[in-house]
Design a binder for these strands. Structure first.
Lengths: 214, 214
DNA sequence: CGATACATTGAACAAATTCAAAGCTGGTGG
DNA sequence: CCACCAGCTTTGAATTTGTTCAATGTATCG
């Protein structure tokens, strides 16, 4: 498969013996773009380590629209909460690109490894990251207006405009393409940004953008 | 003060020696109702253990309104994220009732106790709880409509109506009192619930309520 | 009992989505 | 190479969901 447990940052400090045990309760699996890793409401069975690819976490509204939560990049631990608490997954996850996952049988991991302080620290780190992610989602969705979200996104990820369409940016920001279009229009009209033929953004007034979201 | 570190569930299994060390880097403090424990944007210094009272976590919108996140009851660990990541508090916390907090100097805790598996497990448990809380907040605020929020609240906390005013329930649900009033009115009209003189709710049709939020 | 806070109701307002139509664009096959 | 067309983007209008405002009615607690 080309992957080795020793090379995974989470387990790099692990003893040979533990690596062997870990390899006996886990396996690698490849996924292609658009493939689902798990669906909101699924029962958890594996702890996932994302080794390659981009994985999008999202919820589905009653009307069927995807609500973007986060995109994970390697190396990330995924699914601790649902496994830990033995609750159904509160969100869905699908691959945006092709990718690779290490699937670890959670029950056995729990039996064998939870006394291992190194593993505990990794789990703490991963949980901390999640709390931060969710805390940010709450801030963005409950505190910021659409304009504020767009302004923040431009300041923090302006380079992405060259690579992805407004379409996808709107999905990431959880606003409609129309709202994004109108907001970008307004920012251009106000001389705060401009967008060239290649869809690259130039920021003329970083401070003005910052004011919009702080 | 009437409090003893040994009696705090988080530390009940700790050795005498560690308890002594812990007591040297921590102290108890009483708070009265409405007092702030920390404010959004504050730099963290202490890890907090809520021993008594009800503590409300909330964010403040640009327009100055409080957005309810959660209410903690004893015994809860509070502030791990901000301390761990050394970031400013992403929300504010104030006491709803009077209460007591154990304040632990975080830096020293980190030095001394992070190798202690028992402490690690407590931190993991606390972080897991937080992820669940935030995950629920996201579900409630981004997925559910006002009606759905009210329906869920009634099914899960109908007993609270006898004790607190619609006013406060609206604040907990992050809806305006007017919206709550109108929604309750609708549910009464539809014969799903009724509310008596004592402000106690009777549910006539649990299933109808459930459908509204699932 | 009376003042003050809380609840209810209707109307106006706000923010963003949805719908619809028209204008662009950029990747593909000829 | 370029013409085409499906999929974006843009724009305006209508709609939706809930808040805010205002007025009136009703509890509640010294």
């Amino acid at each position: 498969m080309g992957y080795n447990l020793k090379e995974i940052p989470f387990f790099s400090k692990m003893s040979e013996e533990n690596i062997k045990r870990l390899s006996s309760i886990s396996f690698f699996k490849k996924y292609h773009a658009d493939e689902l890793l798990f669906y909101e409401g699924d029962e958890p069975k594996y702890l996932y380590i994302l080794l390659d690819g981009v994985l999008r976490l999202y919820k589905t509204s009653p009307k069927g629209q995807e609500i973007y939560i986060h995109q994970f990049v390697p190396t990330s631990m995924i699914g601790e909460l649902a496994n830990f608490e033995n609750i159904k997954f509160p969100a869905s996850a699908k691959f945006i690109t092709s990718g690779t996952i290490l699937k670890i049988e959670y029950k056995k991991l729990e039996e064998d490894f939870f006394k291992n302080p190194e593993i505990c620290m990794q789990i703490i780190r991963s949980l901390t990251t999640k709390v931060k992610i969710l805390s940010n989602v709450i801030h963005q969705e409950m505190i910021l207006t659409s304009e504020a979200k767009v302004a923040q996104f431009i300041n923090e990820h302006s380079e992405l405009f060259e690579n992805i369409r407004n379409n996808q940016i709107a999905a990431i920001l959880n606003v409609s393409p129309e709202t994004l279009s109108r907001t970008l229009g307004k920012l251009k009209k106000d001389g705060i940004i401009s967008i060239d033929k290649k869809h690259a953004v130039t920021i003329h007034d970083t401070e003005a953008l910052k004011i919009l979201y702080s």
